[in-house]
């Protein structure tokens, strides 16, 4: 039985609030000792690349670069959708610490094993 919590994130720089909120929630989970993952799809796949969180700061929310680092320090993982990363030309050598490119089967296997998915933003 998987205890993972998977938080969906689909937005990047074009929508700072929607990009940041899944990380806020996931960071709470990670800080509380839960096995937390932010699953980045569509434009959010840039968030797991070098410079991908630069300048993303929604008033009232933490700067995403700082939040990302704190989330990883808390044991969180960031999964980048492979089908979204490939057409954007994102390769493994562009990824920052804590990010991994995954495919749909990886997510499906976790959900089948009992992981809970959270659509937070």
């Amino acid at each position: 039985m998987s205890d993972k919590l998977i938080f969906n994130c689909t937005y990047g720089k074009e929508h700072p609030e929607r990009a940041t909120l899944p990380f806020v929630a996931a960071n709470i989970a990670a800080a509380a000792g839960q096995e937390a993952i932010v699953l980045c799809t569509i434009e959010a796949v840039w968030l797991g690349t070098h410079g991908g969180t630069d300048g993303i700061a929604q008033p009232g929310l933490p700067a995403l670069a700082d939040l990302y680092a704190e989330f990883i320090d808390n044991g969180g993982q960031v999964w980048l959708c492979g089908a979204c990363a490939k057409p954007r030309g994102i390769a493994e050598d562009q990824l920052v610490k804590g990010s991994t490119i995954v495919g749909a089967a990886k997510v499906v296997e976790e959900v089948v094993a009992g992981a809970k998915t959270v659509a937070f933003a």
Binding site: G82, A85, K86, T100, I101, V102, G103, A105, K106, E109
Partner: peptide, 15 residues
């Protein structure tokens, strides 16, 4: 050689 497939193939096989 696909980075996502590296994570996916073991999952696919098990599924």
């Amino acid at each position: 050689s696909d980075p996502a497939a590296k994570e996916d193939l073991p999952s696919l096989a098990r599924l």
